[in-house]
Write a protein that binds this DNA or RNA. Structure first.
Lengths: 233, 233
DNA sequence: ACCTGAACACCGTTCAAGT
DNA sequence: ACCTGAACACCGTTCAAGT
């Protein structure tokens, strides 16, 4: 009975949860999170959409799995960060870990919105936060301060901030809002002034005049430095 | 010809953009953002879904309008904040404005995710940020520092932070992840320890052990204090 | 145990038609 | 100028049926 089906057994790899999840990540990377539908994902795997339900409870579970996949990679890479040598070293270790997390997420531009739409904690995520908390406790934080610190960092602890009005940010194409440059200078004098000064100095950063990485690190250091101060109290 | 239709002219208020937008806000408030569909909203207004397209370009435009509505209310309320008396007063004024913005958004729990999903700036929003920028300039910030500050604050400048894994937060119902308390204490020792210490002290805050308002203000002051420090440099 | 195909109850949006 | 009704191209998900 096996003989009859042996010939066309080509690359007929059986589907499983991991294959579904990695295909989902690649699909979202390639065509955006909007293209990640059950039907489209099934097609990607050469299978009907309904087959996916054998490996994933529903779409929510699919997205949870996808996040778990990314955070799992973060946790692997973060394991290489040198441990703390003394209490004062907490900030260095925390900064390193967070920037590693960022480097993993940065190639999945859809990840922030998917992560923020999750409603339940997953083991990998708990593990990531537990390690950060451990660093702060070694750094001499009280439980209470460490708890506040986690909330203050928010998604920054995972390496991202949701930029408000992302692409052309605060001003670039003023016609998006139907406001002329002259009208804008009158209605929004402070922004207009800032644009004039900052936009004319493109030497500072290689990217546009809002370098996401630079801004992320500025905000991160502002928070970590502030926490380092409080830690001593 | 008017006579025949005069009798049943009851409360036949003609639809317009503003009525559509306020109905959308109320619908989202009452039944959640998921219930805000064109069909449902039309029904709410006693009209077919397709009629809405006479007052709103599409759903994206509807959501932009809804955000504009909320920010417009913020801008009105924020006008009452006393102006700056001297440069050192910038932080007080900024804090006051941001907490007013928060007080407006707090009754629309769906607002953060809708705002963060916007891709283009709207006039009301630009106006809000322009005013904040003005405060910082009066406070002696360089354009460059003020620009960094805006990015560092991010959505906090509008009065909200997207809490990661919102409802039962970091631990409450540990069975959501299928992990027993004992297993959790082993796998996540730091979080387990924190939960034991903090959860047993419910006197501090009236709400659960994560008071959103307290945490928001902690993070906000951390950032504002740090910026105040840099301002002097 | 895994996959299929048809179906259901939804979406946003178009288009031609009404008044 | 505004509204309607049918239709189109999608969603996630169910269910009975196949192998």
């Amino acid at each position: 009975m096996t003989a009859s089906t042996e010939a066309p057994s080509e690359t007929r790899i059986p589907l499983n949860r991991e294959r579904v999840l990695t295909a989902a990540v690649h699909l979202a990377d390639r065509e955006g999170i909007g293209a990640l539908t059950m039907r489209h994902l099934g097609q990607e795997l050469g299978v009907e959409a309904m087959s996916l339900y054998n490996h994933v409870a529903n779409k929510e579970d699919l997205l949870n799995g996808v996040v778990e996949m990314l955070v799992s990679e973060i946790n692997e890479r973060v394991a290489d960060v040198p441990p703390i040598v003394d209490a004062d070293d907490w900030k260095r270790a925390m900064r390193d870990r967070i920037l590693i997390a960022r480097s993993v997420l940065v190639s999945h531009s859809w990840a922030p919105q998917v992560i923020e739409s999750r409603t339940e904690m997953t083991p990998m995520l708990i593990g990531y936060y537990d390690a950060l908390l451990g660093l702060m406790l070694q750094g001499g934080f009280s439980y209470d301060l460490a708890h506040h610190a986690m909330h203050a960092l928010g998604s920054r602890a995972l390496g991202f901030t949701q930029e408000l009005f992302a692409p052309d940010g605060e001003g670039g194409s003023s016609q998006a809002t139907g406001v002329s440059v002259r009208e804008m200078a009158i209605a929004f004098p402070n922004l207009a002034g800032m644009l004039q000064v900052i936009a004319h100095d493109p030497a500072e950063d290689s990217l546009g005049w809002c370098d996401d990485q630079t801004e992320f690190i500025f905000g991160l250091d502002l928070l970590l430095d502030g926490l380092d101060e409080l830690r001593g109290k």
